[in-house]
Amino acid sequence: MKSWISFLLPDDEYRERKILYYLAEGAIFLVLLLIGLFISSRYIPILHINLEVSIFLAIWVFIGYVFIRYILSGMEHADIATDQAYSKQLKFVLSKSVSFVIIFNLVFLLFMFPDSLKEWLGNIGVSIVGGLILFFVEYLSLKKSYEKNKELL
C-alpha cells in the first residue's frame, strides 16, 4: 500500500510498520494535547498558555514522542548482533560525536568569530553539550539494537 508518506518510510516492512505505529501514536497524543490546550485556554483562564508556547509544545510533543520511541525500539542498527560489531559501531558513534563538536566549532568560527573569552567558552560549551547529547542518543539506540539483535540470533 502506497501513500504520499511512503518516501519517508524505510523499505524494510517491519521498520515501516513500527514507524507508522509511532507516528499514529504521536498524532493521538498531539490531538489530546491540542484538545487540552483548547479547553484550558477557553474555559480555564488561569491555565491560559500563549499561542507561541502552545505551538512549540505541540510540535515537540509529537516529534519527541516519535523520536524517543524510535530510539528505544532498537531498530536503528538492525545488523549489530555480535560483540565485535557492537564495539566497532560504538567507536564509530564516538568518532561521529567528536567530529560533530569539531565541525560545529569550525562552522561557527567561519560565520561568527567570537570577540571575547566568554563567547569562545559559550561556543565550545554548546558544541560539547550537543556532542554529548548526540553520543548519548546514538549510544542508547545502539545498545537497544544490540540487545534486541542478540536475542534473535
Partner: peptide, 21 residues
C-alpha cells in the same frame, strides 16, 4: 530485501510478515 533483524523476528515468532514477504 529486509533487514537481518526482521528475519530474526520472524524466526522467533515475534513478527508476522506480510504475504508478500
Amino acid at each position: 530485501g529486509v533487514t537481518r533483524q526482521t528475519i530474526g523476528l520472524i524466526e522467533n515468532g515475534k513478527y508476522n510478515p506480510t504475504l508478500q514477504l
